[in-house]
Design a binder for these strands. Structure first.
Length: 540
RNA sequence: GCCCCCGUAGCUCAGCUGGAUAGAGCGCCGGCCUUCUAAGCCGGAUGUCGCAGGUUCGAAUCCUGCCGGGGGUGCCA
């Protein structure tokens, strides 16, 4: 792990040391921002945690902690106070704040990198939509979540691979081929088949390129190939790059399914009943056992997926992370059971269950159904509101919450639109640097005069120092939406700073100090936007 | 029946590995451009954190029960 180089680390260390003096086994305390700025820059609950151990009232303990902290921090801190039930609040000195900014600016786009502790290797599987149709808006949420999570985990210092599992074999593909054949010949689409207009268009295209005529299996294979090309193009538009594509057909052809079943049979977990082959998933917490091979001899989707997850384990990943739709949540128990059956820890399998996405315009909702023809395509959404808004809006809420995307708002080029709001802050800073370059002011390199750290500037700096913590939190909790929430707060703090603090022409010492604040802010915003796959424009 | 998610301001939601007077955006009302982008900023009003118990010095947050909404529960994938 590269050095975190975060000014807050030093503060946390000082608090831990001072707390240890009160009692050797004080639990790790929180370093927080107080609820109101007049209370100070930072706050710790260490004294309240220590009070029961020490056997003294929290406020008394806080007083002693404050004393110890004062000695340790010296001139780095301006004011230390005991407040409320026993918080110790710290107001940092101007010098500490200015030094902190210089450090953040020096770290640039690497500020906040490498915070994972300990770093792990993860395989993140996401989207994995069946190649029997174009990507939907729902896939858009999966892609925004999965890709951003991967970016965040990587930036935090973990080893990450992104993979797409392609269901290019099995009954759905047979059905897809039969559906195309029906469309070409003008027959009825088979029961439960694919009825979307795109299937007819696909049939039309294949017929013109292959006048000789093809059987349903060939049509299915060709159809998958064409749909997959479209899916890849959509992913590229959405700025998603996969490290690997796992194919169910290849897995089956390589005998991976049989191998996996043999291994499970050797472990005594497979039995036959009613003509089918079953896995004892109930032994590992699943509600009931599951079928691996149907009575008709065909392996189930589950069996193939088991083989795939076994393959992931064999490739040495510590964490297998699957991004699944809410309709697959019943699947989690059995898959985890299968992974445990192979000898892995249950924690090695992690799942994010994505709730649904609704597009809203003027109060109207459009729901999506893939097996019919009327679903909302991701490409249409990208055409409509663009990649930046699509990705940002998908990550404004926890993935566990259903989301409504207001298309009018997402299209709007105004401060009401959160993605423009954040991007605008970045552009504004770039504009300040352009102006500074044009004017070439003689700012001087000395320290800024004392008493020039405005409250808005102080708040902004404290916010920037929060970046590594926000990244660590988003990574460890698998919550990319923390990043969109945070970057909006950074932008808001910057806009307030911009109002109160003149930068270009601020005077000797002060102008370079404020330019450093601007540079640090610009880099933090750019980093955060990049973590969610959104552009940081220099002009708007 | 069982499993998962949700219930916080008029609306959409953050906060939920316990901490100070519960936040943001939208919407509503009122201000601010001769200086670095007004795609911005400032001020104002709004809450039984679904209900009831429990644990705790302290609960929106943890536990139990209940109510309401959504989703899932296939030898489909």
């Amino acid at each position: 792990m590269e050095p975190a180089d975060n000014p807050i680390d030093e503060l946390e260390a000082a608090i831990a040391a001072a707390a240890a003096e009160l009692h050797p086994s004080v639990p790790a305390a929180a370093l927080e921002r107080p609820p109101r700025p007049e209370l100070g820059d930072y706050s710790t609950n260490a004294a309240m945690l220590a009070a029961p151990l020490v056997g003294a009232p929290p406020r008394d303990v806080a007083g002693r902690l404050a004393e110890g902290l004062g000695k340790r921090l010296g001139e780095r801190v301006e004011r230390i106070e005991v407040a409320g039930p026993g918080f110790v609040n710290l107001q940092m000195s101007e010098l500490w704040m200015r030094n902190a900014v210089a450090l953040v600016a020096a770290r640039g786009r690497r500020f906040g990198a490498g915070v994972a502790d300990p770093p792990r290797s993860l395989l993140v599987e996401f989207v994995s939509a069946n190649p029997t149709g174009p990507l939907t808006v729902a896939s858009g949420r999966h892609l925004a979540y999965g890709d951003s999570l991967a970016r965040i985990l990587e930036f935090a210092g973990n080893r990450v691979e992104r993979e797409y599992y392609l269901n290019d074999a099995g009954s759905q593909i047979d059905l897809f081929g039969a559906s195309i054949a029906a469309r070409i010949s003008g027959a009825e689409v088979p029961e439960g088949g694919y009825e979307g207009d795109y299937v007819a268009a696909l049939g039309e295209r294949i017929r013109s390129e292959h006048p000789a005529g093809l059987d349903a299996a060939e049509l299915g294979r060709l159809g998958v190939e064409l749909m997959l090309a479209g899916i890849r193009a959509t992913l590229e538009r959405a700025r998603v790059r996969f490290d690997g594509w796992a194919s169910e057909r290849s897995l089956r052809a390589a005998g991976a399914v049989e191998t996996a079943i043999v291994e499970l049979r050797d472990r005594g977990l497979v039995y036959e009943s009613e003509g089918a082959v079953w896995l004892r998933t109930s032994r590992f917490g699943d509600d009931k056992d599951r079928v691996l091979i149907r009575a008709d001899g065909e392996p189930t989707y589950f069996a193939a997926d088991i083989a795939y997850h076994r393959d992931k384990l064999e490739r040495g990943f510590e964490v297998l992370f699957d991004v699944l739709g809410a309709d697959h949540h019943g699947y989690v128990g059995r898959m985890r059971a299968a992974i445990v059956a192979f000898g892995a820890e249950p924690e090695a399998f992690e799942v994010a269950i994505m709730q649904m996405v609704n597009l809203v315009e003027g109060g109207e909702r459009a729901r999506m159904s893939k097996r019919r023809g009327d679903f909302a395509r991701l490409d249409d959404l990208l055409d409509d509101i663009g990649v930046d808004a699509t990705r940002f809006f998908m990550l404004m809420r926890s993935h566990e919450t259903p989301i409504d995307i207001d298309l009018e708002l997402a299209r709007a080029h105004s401060s009401d639109n959160p993605v423009y709001y954040a991007q605008y802050a970045h552009a504004r800073i770039c504009s300040i640097f352009r102006t500074a370059a044009e004017r070439g002011t003689e700012a001087g390199n000395g320290p800024p005069p004392a008493g020039t750290l405005e409250p808005a500037e102080r708040s902004l700096i404290a916010r920037l120092l929060d970046a590594p913590g926000q990244i660590a939190r988003a990574a460890s909790r698998r919550e990319p939406h923390g990043i969109t929430t945070y970057v909006r707060a950074v932008a808001a703090d910057f806009h307030a700073f911009y109002r109160d603090c003149r930068v270009v022409g601020a005077g000797p010492g002060l102008e370079p100090a404020r330019l450093a604040v601007c540079a640090a802010t610009r880099d933090v915003i750019a980093t955060m936007l990049d973590l969610v796959g959104v552009d940081a424009p220099e002009e708007m």
